[in-house]
């Protein structure tokens, strides 16, 4: 199975930087939380850039 990424909802501030960077628009953001959908291609750009480091590979 392909690597996918997920957001830890506890630390996410919803700033939306990840969504701006996501090349396949796989990140949805409401005002306070980002969610990574199954469209994720696993490039990891969001995780590199997340200012609060709450994006990581999915554990499942």
């Amino acid at each position: 199975m392909k690597t996918k990424y997920e957001v830890d909802p506890d630390g996410c501030t919803g700033c939306g930087g990840c969504a701006a960077l996501c090349p396949v628009s796989a990140i949805e953001v409401d005002a306070i939380l980002a969610t990574i959908t199954d469209e994720c291609i696993g490039c990891g750009i969001c995780a590199d850039f997340c200012p609060v480091s709450v994006i990581d590979r999915r554990k499942s």
Binding site: G17, A20, L21, F49, C50
Partner: peptide
Amino acid sequence: SHLKPRDAYTAL
């Protein structure tokens, strides 16, 4: 298009 990594400024 989406923001290219070189064009993104991240801050806290």
